[in-house]
C-alpha cells in the first residue's frame, strides 16, 4: 500500500461525492426508512425512501460518516433513484464483486461511478464503510412503513 493505492482509493469522483453528496437530508414523507451503524468506526447513516407501486421515487440519506461511506451513499442513491428493487439487488451483487476486485472496467458496470470503488480491494478494513449504505438501503426496503 502506498500513495498510488491511496489515490486509487480516494478517486476524485469519490472525494467529490463525499464533499457535496447528492440526495443529502431528510425526505418530508417517506414510505421506507432504516438506520445503519458500523460499530468499528462509529459511522452512522439513515436512509429514507419513497416507494410507490414498486418504483423507488424519492431517495435521501443523512450520515455522520467517513468519505468512503458518504460517497457510496451518494452514488448508490443517484443510481437507484427511479428504478426498482430488482435493479437494486442486481447492482448490490455487482457492487460486492467490485469491492472484491472481481469486476474490471471492461465488464461494463451499470454505473461508471460505482467502478470508482475498485481501489478498496487494497484496504480490506474499509470495505464495510462502502457497504454500509447498501446494507442500510436493503434493510430500508424491508422496512415497509406504509407502502
Amino acid at each position: 500500500m502506498n500513495e498510488t493505492d491511496l489515490q486509487d482509493l480516494y478517486q476524485s469522483v469519490l472525494v467529490q461525492h463525499s464533499k457535496s453528496p447528492l440526495h443529502y437530508g431528510k425526505l418530508d414523507s417517506h414510505t421506507h426508512y432504516s438506520e445503519g451503524y458500523n460499530a468499528l468506526c462509529g459511522d452512522a447513516i439513515s436512509i429514507y425512501l419513497s416507494v410507490k407501486q414498486g418504483k423507488i421515487e424519492k431517495v435521501s440519506f443523512e450520515s455522520a460518516s467517513c468519505a468512503i461511506c458518504k460517497a457510496s451513499a451518494s452514488i448508490l442513491l443517484e443510481a437507484i433513484k427511479e428504478t426498482n428493487e430488482e435493479t437494486f439487488f442486481s447492482m448490490q451483487d455487482e457492487f460486492s464483486k467490485i469491492l472484491d476486485g472481481e469486476v474490471s472496467d471492461q465488464m461494463g458496470a451499470s454505473s461508471q461511478e460505482i467502478l470508482a470503488f475498485q481501489g478498496i480491494k487494497q484496504f480490506p478494513s474499509r470495505k464495510n464503510c462502502a457497504l454500509l449504505p447498501w446494507e442500510t438501503l436493503h434493510k430500508a426496503l424491508n422496512s415497509n412503513i406504509k407502502d
Binding site: 502506498n2 491511496l6 480516494y10 464533499k19 468506526c41 462509529g42 467517513c66 484496504f123
Partner: peptide, 22 residues
C-alpha cells in the same frame, strides 16, 4: 471536514498506526 476513519487510512499508508473510532 475529514472523518477520523479517512485520517487513519491515510496515516496507515505511511506506516503510522493510530486508532480511529469511539
Amino acid at each position: 471536514a475529514i472523518h477520523a476513519h479517512d485520517v487513519g487510512t491515510f496515516l496507515d499508508a505511511g506506516g503510522i498506526a493510530i486508532r480511529t473510532g469511539h
